[in-house]
Amino acid sequence: MVDKTKIPLPQPTPETAHFWAGTKNETLKLQRCDDCNNVYFPPRPFCPSCASRKVSVFDASGSATLYSYVINNRPHPAFDGPYSIAVVELEEGPRMMSNIINCPQTPEALELDMPLEVVFESMSEEISLPYFQPATSDSKSSDSRNQ
């Protein structure tokens, strides 16, 4: 659906390199504060809640729900027709922007709070982007809930 050559791909920085190494290996990395247990995103080497520098990287479950979105109707060089730009709420708490894929790009198909799961799309040798799709039935287990 996406013309990979027309997407401005992220350039990792020292503070975010672990996240992009993670997506390349098909894992979604989050960070948790070792002092106050706050789980946060985007990556940074300290806790934005209590300022502790003692933080750990862990694998998120990849489960999320649809928090909000728009369907862009204006032409974009990388997209074919109207497409969703969404904010998803990860099972662990943080929210992130993404596109909802493998799903009709319509208000009827995109229901707020619907369960989603992460999928990774290789865009270049260095970068795989996390996207989200409607959850398949066997991915709804919340046993891996971290909070």
Binding site: P8, P10, Q11, T16, S68, Y69, I85, V87
Partner: peptide
């Protein structure tokens, strides 16, 4: 933001068209 900024890395790749798609995004919620 350039592609190495935080917004450039974590929002830039998802086809945003500036204010028309960002400013409006919270409203369905």
């Amino acid at each position: 933001g350039g592609r190495s900024t935080i917004p450039g890395q974590f929002e830039g790749p998802y086809g945003g068209m500036g204010p028309t798609t960002s400013f409006t995004l919270p409203f369905l919620r």
